[in-house]
Design a protein around this nucleic acid. Structure first.
Length: 265
DNA sequence: ATCGGGATTGCCT
DNA sequence: GGCAATCCCGATG
């Protein structure tokens, strides 16, 4: 497929965009989808992943995770929420204290390596290794961009028969949900995002450097038992995005916007 | 060989 | 908001 480029970015007010996102069949969403094409220029290479854990966790926000299945269908979701697990002293990390096991091997592999681990029996979570010994970033939520119909089918497998259809924003708003929606499997563990044919990352097709992301940083979720480490504000998400799994109002009050989290008043 | 717990989800009240 | 589901992994004996 030839890489068709959009001439002018789609301009929609945030409130309007939120409304549109909830409707997968709105003209805006259809148009957005049409402009998404397989374009090698967009794929992120190994240099992108080679940065410190917290830095990578922020840099991943807005990037597009792409999954190409065996029939050539491409599923796309924009990363809207991540968590950093730098390892070392961090008790919440699978690599705490430099611990190495069969399961967490991928955390020690080169930046850009995928770490997939099973949780609660049936579910999976996906991480991306960063620079640093045993450091990785957990992907927690995506905003579906392409392939919503297939995502809905993949997600329906675990749900009660006759349950109402999932809204777009509920397809991948959680770490295990995004693995289901993009058909990320256990066998993807230890694969390289920079070179794998089935899964990769792309830049935002119409990112505007003049408008940096409004990033909220908050404590990570689901690790309350790890004392002081549970308080570190190492979860990052795009403020106001409807696909974020858990909104932290305290964190949003405490910090003004932007990419640097300068305390506000 | 056994045992305890987990970076969650979905359904029920 | 509560709570069961579900099983693999890693630690321990």
């Amino acid at each position: 497929m030839a890489g068709r480029k959009r001439k002018t970015p789609l301009k929609v007010s945030p409130a309007r965009l939120k409304e549109k996102r909830d409707n997968p069949h709105s003209p805006e969403m259809e148009e957005r989808r049409l402009f998404i094409q397989d374009d090698p220029q967009l794929r992120l290479g190994e240099e992108f992943f080679n940065q410190p854990c917290l830095s990578l966790a922020r840099a991943l926000l807005g990037k597009v995770l792409v999954r190409r299945d065996e029939d050539g269908n491409e599923l796309r979701g924009r990363i809207v929420e991540t968590e950093a697990y730098p390892g070392g002293e961090d008790k919440a990390s699978h690599s705490a204290g430099g611990k190495r096991t069969e399961r967490n091997t991928a955390m020690y592999m080169k930046p850009g390596t995928i770490y997939v681990f099973p949780i609660y029996g049936i579910l999976l979570c996906m991480n991306v290794s960063s620079e640093g010994e045993g450091a990785a970033v957990l992907l927690r939520a995506l905003e579906p961009l392409q392939g919503q119909t297939l995502m809905r089918r993949l997600r329906a497998a675990r749900r009660r028969e006759g349950a109402p259809q999932l809204k777009d924003k509920d397809l991948s708003n959680g770490p295990a949900k995004l693995c289901q929606a993009l058909h990320i499997l256990r066998c993807f563990d230890r694969r390289d995002l920079a070179s794998d044919p089935d899964v990769w990352l792309e830049r935002e097709p119409d990112a505007n450097p003049a408008e940096p992301h409004d990033i909220v940083s908050a404590p990570r979720v689901g690790i309350e038992s790890h004392g002081e480490w549970a308080k570190k504000p190492w979860r990052f998400y795009l403020r106001g995005n409807p696909c974020v799994s858990v909104v932290n109002k305290d964190a949003e009050r405490q910090y003004a916007s932007s990419t640097d989290n300068v305390p506000h008043v």
